[in-house]
């Protein structure tokens, strides 16, 4: 905001404008066309997708996989974050690194290796395998957001609770949990968003007849892009945006002291 900073040259403005056009015009087009009728505007595409049984099922599957894998990630991720931040043990360093690796792992490799593993174990591909697969990549994000929150929290808070007679269990529920809850919620929203629009890992680990929404959209495009797909994609876009905006708003509200 400092007024001493010089204005960028016009050249950069042009580059930026072109870049943003490349990013946002296709998105805008998609949204616009989802409301487009041969003559004028319509909500028909939206009503149409909600009367398509297969789409409803895919949407339901996406919500189911997203919700369950998020719930599992929250429980495991919070426990792992607490362990990493509040205890000392042999192999802590290795554990720390291992929790970060899934973030940089190529998704194709991740999906393929999971597929091979499920086949080897004889797991039937379907919602179960997808949930397990989604946990493998959403877990890291929950661990990171909860850990950040724990790092901003005075460890003396927990000692104070113990000192006042709280058992370890009471200490967690009365003090630690309320204080890290914003981190857990942000991590959960992030996990859900990632799970909801994941395609690659899902593609490898979904069985026949267990399409999620992104997979359904992909298979529909094989027969050409229809306004229905535009409507469905717009729906996904809105859901993801809402998730991200909520995370952002929460972080602004509850910035750690």
């Amino acid at each position: 905001m400092s007024s001493t900073k010089p204005k960028p040259s016009r050249f950069y403005g042009v580059i930026s404008a072109l870049t943003f056009i490349m990013i946002y015009v296709p998105l805008a087009t998609l949204v616009v066309f989802s409301f487009r009728a041969p003559t004028g505007w319509t909500f028909d595409w939206y009503t149409k997708i909600f009367s398509d049984q297969q789409i409803i099922e895919a949407l339901g599957m996406s919500f189911f996989v997203g919700t369950v894998s998020t719930a599992i990630s929250i429980v495991l991720g919070t426990a792992a974050a607490l362990t990493l931040e509040r205890t000392r043990f042999k192999g802590r360093g290795a554990f720390d690194i291992l929790t970060h690796i899934p973030i940089i792992m190529p998704e194709t490799v991740m999906g393929l290796s999971l597929l091979i593993w499920f086949v080897f174990l004889g797991v039937t591909l379907g919602s179960f395998s997808m949930i397990v697969a989604h946990v493998t990549f959403t877990l890291s994000y929950v661990i990171i957001t909860v850990r950040t929150r724990l790092q901003g929290m005075d460890p003396q808070m927990e000692e104070a609770a113990r000192d006042l007679g709280a058992s370890p269990w009471q200490t967690f529920w009365k003090v630690t949990f309320p204080l890290v809850r914003p981190g857990i919620v942000s991590g959960g929203l992030l996990a859900f968003t990632l799970s909801f629009d994941d395609f690659l890992v899902t593609f490898f680990t979904a069985g026949a007849g267990s399409d999620t929404l992104p997979m359904k959209i992909y298979s529909m495009t094989k027969y050409g892009v229809s306004p229905e797909i535009n409507a469905l994609s717009t729906l996904m876009l809105v859901l993801t945006l809402v998730g991200v905006l909520v995370i952002g708003a929460r972080e602004k509200l509850s910035s750690p002291r």
């Binding site: 808070m157 000692e159 104070a160 003090v175």
Partner: peptide
């Protein structure tokens, strides 16, 4: 019971 250096009140 303890009074902590940085008070450790529950925010």
């Amino acid at each position: 019971n303890m009074v902590f250096q940085r008070y450790a009140l529950f925010p």
